[in-house]
Computed example of a mutant assay.
Amino acid sequence: MYVAVKGGEKAIDNAHAWLAEERRGDLSVAELSVEQIREQLSLAVNRVMAEGSLYDPDLAALAIKQARGDLIEAIFLIRAYRTTLPRFGGTAPVDTEAMACDRRVSATFKDAPGGQVLGPTFDYTHRLLDFKLAADGEVPEGVKAEATQAPTPHIMDFLDREDLIQNEVSGNDVPPDLTRTPLELPAERALRLQSLTRGDEGFILGMAYSTQRGYARNHAFVAELRIGAVPVEMEIPELGFAIEIGEITLTECETVNQFKGSKTEPPQFTRGYGLVFGMTERKAISMALVDRALRWKELGEDNVGAPAQDEEFVLYHSDNIQATGFLEHIKLPHYVDFQSELELIRKLRREAQGLQEAAE
């Protein structure tokens, strides 16, 4: 017979203490510092900042340490902390053309103006375990190129000049802030992009992959992928002009997609766009593919029923914090609910057994 278990404050305190012990691990092994995580696990830090909607490498590294490497838990910590911060105002839109590029590649033009910069990437590694790292050996250093400081024009500008790509009309209205107001559907593109940039990387990747496999008829070329630091400026009312308050590292991806035209648009290329905190290129590319798939209505295309074209499905299920909360709540006490269902099943079984005996 099922019996409801009981717990209390002491059990919770013990669970916290055990968690802290597990987090620290073997005391004979040196403790991992926040600085080590920030500098040596930078890609994990970048993901936590992007999906946590807060650009602070030190706090992201601290969250990773506290979460024992569980990145979704770390993202949860960052989002919770973010809600406690005061808001002083909004910054001006960043100018990614002024980006000091550590990496800048194009799959559409070999001789791109400004040059191709491979940068630090896994693309050309052999994906073999390097046991020198296990032995704490120093890896030989290569020649590190300096980031491109001169303004680097976007590849899309060259297609714009020939009127070969859909013209983007930029609105003057300030888009709604997803971190301050709940998501409402249908969502304008600016709001969709906000949702995608802080959505779960694995989910967005899966949606993007589905478009490449034929769900949404979305064949894309990476017109440009760039990673680097951009200055952040803010208008100071007392001064009457904007001043630079710092810089952040961003990954930007623009894709070129085939478009046969519609009743209102001529045959031309169309765009997909992704912009993410830190060096997060897999996420930025995925975001650009999903962004393009979600634009079917505004481009006058047919909805072929692909998951990546379903705005509600993509946007409501991409947030790993909401998903985690709803998923993990079922492991919390549901004693009353279960007892009522348990009694119902017992009653139905007794009735069924009574009918069976009566028939015999």
Rank of each mutant, 00 (worst) to 15 (best):
E247S: 15
D163I: 14
G246V: 09
T148I: 06
L178C: 08
L315T: 07
E301T: 01
E97K: 11
L85Y: 00
F338P: 00
I236C: 07
G114L: 00
R79Y: 01
S318E: 06
E201P: 06
G8I: 01
V29E: 10
E235D: 15
M1K: 04
L225I: 03
V34A: 10
G278Q: 01
L225W: 01
L225K: 04
L193K: 07
F313Y: 11
R38F: 09
V304E: 11
T255L: 09
E254V: 08
T108D: 08
Y55P: 01
S318H: 04
Q116M: 12
L118Q: 13
V48C: 04
A150K: 10
V304R: 05
R23S: 13
A17V: 06
E254F: 00
A190F: 02
L327F: 06
L133F: 06
V48D: 04
D310H: 13
V230T: 11
L128Q: 09
F203H: 11
V117N: 10
I204R: 07
Q322E: 15
N172R: 12
I78P: 04
Q356T: 07
R82Q: 08
L332T: 05
G8L: 02
A63K: 02
V45Y: 06
G119K: 02
A284V: 00
K263Q: 13
V94R: 02
E31Y: 01
P113Y: 12
S28A: 07
A61E: 03
L191I: 12
A4P: 12
T280V: 02
E351W: 00
T148P: 01
V314I: 11
V29G: 00
L196D: 05
P186K: 04
V48T: 07
L159R: 03
V174P: 00
